[in-house]
Design a protein around this nucleic acid. Structure first.
Lengths: 223, 223
DNA sequence: CGACCATTTGATATGGATCAAGCGATGTGG
DNA sequence: CCACATCGCTTGATCCATATCAAATGGTCG
């Protein structure tokens, strides 16, 4: 129950932000009409825990993680967001911080621009996002009560579904990221991956490139 | 990682429903204007996982739990809802089942009555509920990565805050409910409570009535 | 009183954390 | 181009928190 992480919390350097914030198109109809994407370097901070949540964000390329650092220094990752995902949809202030996992482009739009809109199309999109976010959080809760094998297997299947769709998964995130998402240590994640490989369920082509050989076996481990 | 639960899943008896469903006032303005509350007996089912989520529910008295039964038979409780709380706000179909923890009264309203409304007051209330629900789910996630002591201490403080507000907490739910909420076993919950008592942090006046003696100590355990 | 159910307590087992070392890739300076 | 430092990952040995198995206790209702 102690400090697993302590990772690069020095990610506030302004230099991480590659491009300056663009002017936002303050609405024209739908969420697709956002401002020019902003680029964030690997590990750059996008927003911080407790900042007021004035904007919504959409991943255009790369990957974003949201997380919270507990009193004892451990980091819990709330979610990984893929291109197309919207994040930052919370209450009045952010409950998590957000960082780029790899170099990423993110578009931004003022919350009020959407929430004040009377356009039923926008309202429907917003509710869809809220429902998706709640679903993610609930799924995450269900993950955390499973065994290490089940968590890792479920994680791989989720990553597979979100990425290519084929059997080879390229993980943009580190073992520490995975561990902090699954509520495990890097050692356990690593060992579990090795074990899944020895079972023939997966093949570790490199640390970050994994081939899922037997979805059946994985699903079995996932229970 | 095996069957902790297997509890009363035979809760579908019609007799559990004390009163017949009342006619709903199909909107007049706000959520307060719901139909006559329906009574549910202890452990009675309110809705089932995967049913289409056509209604929203508000606890008028008693307590409601939402839960999901995993493939291996374990039960995970998603949330306990107190009087005044609204539940059932999910996507198009329920991801959890809902049951009364004790004899309870629940008011019901058709989702469409609210979602189709153009009343900005209602829209604001809906977003408030969605935000609360998301917050609950995220807090729950953070709970599940803590130690048993931290989970139990956090649980007690949450219960204290939600109920009387004073130092004596009456728990309407069983140890099994608590265990399934915290992702622990009943034995661990029981032992942890005993330990907290031996530390002087709490006093077990009876199994379900707990006095919080030292909020400081509890908060310390909670980390 | 006696049956039943919820809770507590005890003894032991085990999954994952922790501590520690080794390994492979990547990058840097000489 | 190679020696070497660094970083991310894996593997090994051991420890500990919590699960599991088992029994005792207490509270409730007929």
């Amino acid at each position: 129950m102690l400090s697993q992480t302590m990772v690069a919390r020095n990610s506030l350097r302004q230099s991480d932000r590659i491009a300056p914030p663009a002017a936002f198109i303050s609405l024209g109809g739908a969420i697709e009409l956002m401002g020019t994407p902003i680029s964030f370097a690997r590990n750059a901070e996008i927003y911080f825990e407790s900042e007021s949540a004035d904007y919504l964000y959409k991943v255009e390329s790369g990957m974003v993680r949201t997380f919270k650092v507990l009193a004892d220094g451990r980091r819990q990752i709330g979610c990984f967001y893929w291109p197309g995902d919207v994040f930052g949809l919370e209450g009045d202030e952010h409950t998590f911080s957000a960082e780029a996992v790899v170099n990423s482009r993110v578009s931004v739009i003022k919350r009020t621009a959407l929430f004040d809109s009377r356009d039923p199309h926008i309202a429907r999109q917003l509710w869809g996002m809220a429902a998706a976010e709640l679903q993610r959080a609930q799924d995450h809760t269900m993950l955390l009560v499973k065994s290490a094998q089940e968590r890792v297997a479920a994680f791989l299947m989720e990553m597979s579904k979100r990425s290519s769709g084929n059997n080879v998964v390229d993980l943009p995130m580190s073992r520490q990221d995975i561990a902090d998402y699954l509520g495990l240590t890097i050692e356990t994640v690593s060992r579990t991956l090795s074990h899944l490989e020895s079972c023939g369920a997966i093949s570790l082509q490199s640390a970050r490139r994994i081939m899922l050989c037997s979805h059946g076996t994985l699903r079995h481990f996932n229970a």
